[in-house]
């Protein structure tokens, strides 16, 4: 029963940061600098989310798999193949390294 309260508290602190800006920043016109700041946020966030997380994503003992999977995905993304193939290529690259080494 206590665990249920913990889960609900975790749910609250997860939901509040997601909800407040979307509900509050309704129809706000931001200054131009902030607008440019906002347009850069996705790219900055993606960069920070990818590195260094991707390297240890296949387990800290399999960093080679993470690195090769990452390079495969970068190559396929550079060639602008469909997102599904980028994901499949990343998994396949990591898988082959895990199997072979």
């Amino acid at each position: 029963m206590n665990l249920i309260y913990l889960v609900l508290a975790m749910a609250a602190v997860t939901y509040i940061p997601r909800m407040v800006p979307l509900v509050i920043l309704k129809n706000v016109r931001l200054p131009r600098y902030l607008n440019r700041f906002m347009t850069f946020i996705p790219y900055a966030a993606l960069g920070a989310l990818i590195f260094p997380g991707v390297i240890t994503s296949t387990g800290s003992g399999h960093m080679g798999a993470g690195i090769i999977g990452c390079l495969t995905a970068i190559l396929l993304a550079w060639l602008e193949t469909n997102l599904i193939f980028v994901i499949a290529g990343g998994i396949l690259g990591a898988f082959l390294v895990s199997v072979l080494f």
Binding site: Y43, I50, V54, G69, A77, I87, G90, I91, A94
Partner: peptide
């Protein structure tokens, strides 16, 4: 463990095409 990379590969697939097209995006992401 190999599947652990799936979402990172998706992030890569989302980011790289924009990095290719725009130098500001490249600089910010790097």
């Amino acid at each position: 463990t190999s599947m652990g990379i799936a979402l990172y590969a998706m992030f890569i697939g989302l980011l790289i095409p924009h990095v290719k097209k725009s130098k500001p995006v490249l600089v910010v992401a790097m």
